[in-house]
Design a protein around this nucleic acid. Structure first.
Lengths: 110, 110
DNA sequence: ATATATATGTTGACTATCGACATGTGAGAT
DNA sequence: ATCTCACATGTCGATAGTCAACATATATAT
């Protein structure tokens, strides 16, 4: 696992963000920690990827933010999906399934 | 499927190439057609991605090429994996499985 | 003759990730 | 008191891989 996740993360980060904030409002730092936790430290999203991705998604109107307080009492920016963000998530999941299905097929039968 | 496959293809193209030439020697054009066929036209790899990827892999010593004739009688460059290319394929498949497992987990339980 | 599919290759633009840097706060240790 | 660490948001320049478009050439079918 020496290889950086740059290449594969490419294209799935927005899906992951949308999915993680669908369950509940989360702030950026929390999203990064969640990804790291789910992956048992295999996938580590740097701030230089995460925050631009959040701003990108917000700019596209797929997520919206609001300032609030974290469990630890700190000032944080919570994100939640907009309606079009929820729709986008469905599309991205469906495309991911199709895409990963193709990769698996070629791995099996290529 | 309006979305271009740029983002997701990123990081899996070398895996696909290595896998497809593991079964038998193939030339570039054939590899592209194979990916397109397996994916039923969902994944279309342009020449601007494919040929640089082949040269990259050859430069890294993961594949080797030899000129020959295609079934249609044309002069083509056949590629096959080197020993380290075969090893690299195993690693990439294993990493792909881990990676896609994480994405699927987050999609299910995020 | 001409168009199409086969076949290899290059180029410049784009874009998302990366590592490093910058800034600030709250909690616990010394 | 001070210091370090985890928390938390953000920017910046470099890197790298894909893309569309272009360039070239041959064999086959119309």
């Amino acid at each position: 696992m020496k290889k950086s996740n740059a290449e594969l993360l490419h294209g799935t980060l927005e899906l992951l963000i949308l999915r993680l904030i669908r369950s509940k409002k989360r702030h950026g730092y929390e999203i990064a920690k969640q990804i790291q936790a789910f992956s048992k430290d295999t996938l580590v999203v740097g701030q230089g990827s995460l925050y631009p991705a959040l701003h990108r998604l917000e700019h596209k109107g797929l997520i919206q933010s609001s300032w609030g307080k974290s469990e630890t009492g700190r000032r944080v920016k919570f994100y939640e999906p907009t309606e079009s963000g929820a729709a986008q998530l469905k599309e991205e999941v469906s495309y991911w399934e199709e895409f990963s299905g193709i990769i698996n097929l070629i791995i099996r039968e290529g």
